[in-house]
Computed example of a mutant assay.
Amino acid sequence: MPVDGTFEKVVGALSYDPETQVCHIDLRMEVSSLKVGSALLRTAMLSGLMLDSDDHPSMRFAGDCQPKITNNKLETLLVGKLTMRGQTHPLTFKVKMHFSRNTLTEISSSATFDQRQWGLSTMLGTVQPLVQAETSIILK
């Protein structure tokens, strides 16, 4: 069964060069601010078997946009590292940049990763190891 979750406390910085379409993103998420469908599920996800919010109260993603042309189409990747549960591993997002005229208004991205790489439990196979992460940064 799919589970949707959101971190309500996220801080960070974004720099973007419109000429080269290169960006740098550095985000920190407060693990205990995770919101999911039920209190029971939230408790399990924050436990030592999963995100371990007591010993690892924050997560961090830092990376750089890397635009490239593929089949005559601009494709941007956000290549960086995710730190979760005290472990840091590479993670690459596919990025879509949304513009209003010539102004960048939103950067949305998605990636799929195996949570076991960061030491999260699958709770004896009851939890799908692959996680799809989606981000949306709205610029004002």
Rank of each mutant, 00 (worst) to 15 (best):
12 G>I: 02
14 L>G: 00
14 L>M: 03
17 D>I: 06
21 Q>N: 10
22 V>P: 00
23 C>F: 14
23 C>G: 15
26 D>T: 08
27 L>S: 00
28 R>H: 10
28 R>K: 12
29 M>G: 01
29 M>K: 01
30 E>D: 09
31 V>H: 04
31 V>G: 05
31 V>E: 03
32 S>R: 12
33 S>V: 06
33 S>F: 01
34 L>F: 00
36 V>D: 07
39 A>S: 14
39 A>M: 13
42 R>I: 05
42 R>W: 05
43 T>Y: 07
43 T>Q: 14
43 T>F: 09
43 T>R: 14
44 A>G: 11
45 M>Y: 04
45 M>N: 02
45 M>R: 00
46 L>N: 02
46 L>K: 03
47 S>Y: 00
47 S>Q: 01
47 S>P: 04
48 G>I: 03
48 G>D: 05
48 G>M: 05
49 L>D: 15
53 S>P: 04
53 S>R: 07
53 S>Q: 10
55 D>H: 15
55 D>Y: 10
55 D>A: 14
57 P>F: 01
61 F>M: 01
62 A>W: 09
63 G>R: 06
63 G>M: 05
63 G>A: 03
64 D>W: 08
64 D>L: 10
64 D>K: 13
65 C>M: 03
65 C>F: 06
67 P>L: 02
68 K>H: 09
69 I>K: 14
69 I>P: 02
69 I>R: 14
71 N>I: 02
72 N>D: 13
73 K>Y: 03
77 L>F: 11
77 L>H: 12
77 L>Q: 12
78 L>Q: 08
78 L>I: 08
78 L>E: 08
78 L>C: 09
79 V>D: 08
81 K>P: 06
81 K>H: 13
83 T>P: 08
83 T>S: 14
84 M>Y: 00
86 G>A: 04
88 T>V: 08
88 T>C: 09
89 H>W: 06
89 H>Y: 10
90 P>K: 09
94 K>E: 14
95 V>H: 02
95 V>P: 02
96 K>H: 13
97 M>N: 11
99 F>H: 06
101 R>D: 12
101 R>E: 12
101 R>V: 00
101 R>S: 11
102 N>V: 09
109 S>E: 06
110 S>C: 06
112 T>N: 13
112 T>H: 11
112 T>L: 10
112 T>R: 15
113 F>Y: 13
114 D>V: 08
114 D>I: 04
114 D>T: 04
115 Q>Y: 02
116 R>L: 01
117 Q>P: 03
119 G>C: 08
119 G>R: 03
120 L>A: 01
121 S>Q: 02
122 T>C: 01
122 T>H: 00
123 M>K: 13
124 L>H: 10
124 L>Q: 11
126 T>W: 09
126 T>I: 11
127 V>A: 00
128 Q>H: 13
131 V>Q: 04
133 A>K: 01
133 A>D: 00
135 T>D: 08
135 T>G: 15
136 S>K: 14
137 I>K: 09
137 I>P: 03
138 I>Q: 14
